[in-house]
């Protein structure tokens, strides 16, 4: 089975091709902007690198967030477009799962992103099986520390762009993961190997509402 993994949800752009469960080719480049320009090039490079064509793909695995709103939609839109054209399923993987899959150890894996504005995106998992211990959430740093303390566990590995922020709020508890603090497509693809294909393509996981203020009522009077 040929699985294409994609991620553009954070400050990296990556694509990976898994052939029968093994990593055949991958690209991972750190970038703040430019994901929309680079992604398709990465895809064709990993396909060529493994001697495969688009039509050889069996499924696409793509991160669905949380991440930057616009960045998350870059790879997911491309994945959905490819899926229509190739008539293959898209499997959505959260950026938390992608981070946790890159960590090691049987203890608690805490995936945490700096969501700015004094908040963290947070989810904790147990061991290699990535059994969720908490739901995906956007929390203040203090509330995030409380959530993790509430697990009553000391065997914590903390990874992601919010790892240092969370660890200091936990008074230094846990160890920082050595894996990439942003998702990598090779882990995204790996996570899709065992999953059931959904009947419809996945939607983004934003964890935050859009910024929009309702307008003030008009000051005019009407009969």
């Amino acid at each position: 089975m040929n699985i294409l993994g994609l991620d553009t949800a954070h400050s990296a752009c990556s694509a990976a091709l898994l052939v029968d469960g093994k990593l055949a080719a991958h690209r991972f480049e750190l970038m703040r902007v430019g994901h929309a320009e680079r992604l398709m090039g990465q895809i064709s490079e990993v396909l060529e690198g493994a001697g495969r064509k688009y039509s050889d793909l069996d499924r696409i695995a793509c991160t669905i967030g949380p991440g930057t709103f616009t960045g998350t939609r870059i790879a997911l839109s491309a994945a959905r477009g490819l899926a229509i054209g190739l008539r293959i399923p898209v499997i959505g993987v959260t950026t938390f799962e992608a981070l946790a899959a890159a960590m090691s150890g049987e203890g608690v894996r805490v995936a945490v992103f700096d969501a700015k504005r004094g908040e963290l995106y947070l989810q904790a998992f147990a061991g290699d099986a990535l059994a969720p211990l908490t739901a995906p959430e956007a929390l203040t740093i203090k509330a995030a520390a409380q959530r993790i303390n509430g697990l009553g566990r000391d065997d914590l590995t903390i990874g992601g762009t919010g790892a240092e922020l969370l660890q200091s709020a936990l008074a230094g508890k846990g160890v920082l993961s050595e894996a990439s603090p942003v998702p990598e497509a090779r882990f995204v693809a790996q996570l899709a190997v065992m999953r059931d294909a959904p009947s419809s393509p996945p939607s983004p996981l934003y964890l935050r509402p859009p910024d929009a203020d309702l307008p003030p009522p008009t000051s005019l009077k009407f009969t």
Binding site: A75, A78, G81, I84
Partner: peptide, 9 residues
Amino acid sequence: MTAKGLAAA
């Protein structure tokens, strides 16, 4: 991006 995916496919 949807169009790029469609065209590539």
